[in-house]
Design a protein around this nucleic acid. Structure first.
Length: 103
DNA sequence: ACTTTGACCGGTC
DNA sequence: TGACCGGCCAAAG
């Protein structure tokens, strides 16, 4: 097989992110798992940082497993609130409530 | 080819 | 959830 890497990785990640419903959030590991790259959760984050530049995908619906928002992405907070997502005192998303089950 | 880095994750306490 | 820690893997230096 050819040297398949980031080009296809980006496509798969963005496709998965696109599937996240409004008012829900998914973790990097979750996205990584959906595309068959469970161990590459960090790469997902790297790609998503560029996704902000694309600003064409709901990258704001992706948080880490603790519900922590992305650093250097303050807008993410308001974007999520705009979709009805609430935050806890610590500023983290309530994964119990808004965690996407991957229906 | 080696080392460092990163929008991370899953145990354990 | 939080701190601590080891693991994991591609990209960048």
């Amino acid at each position: 097989m050819s040297g398949v890497l980031n080009d296809e990785l980006i496509y798969e990640i963005l496709s998965a992110v696109e599937e996240i419903p409004e008012g829900k959030v998914a973790s990097y590991g979750q996205i990584a798992r959906l595309i068959g790259r469970e161990k590459n959760s960090r790469l997902v984050g790297k790609v998503l940082s560029m996704a902000e530049y694309y600003r064409k995908y709901p990258c704001h619906r992706v948080v880490n497993s603790a519900g922590r928002l992305a650093p250097g992405f303050e807008e993410q907070c308001s974007l999520l609130e705009n979709e009805g997502v609430e935050f806890k005192e610590n500023g983290c998303v309530d994964m119990k409530k808004y965690g996407w089950n991957g229906e």
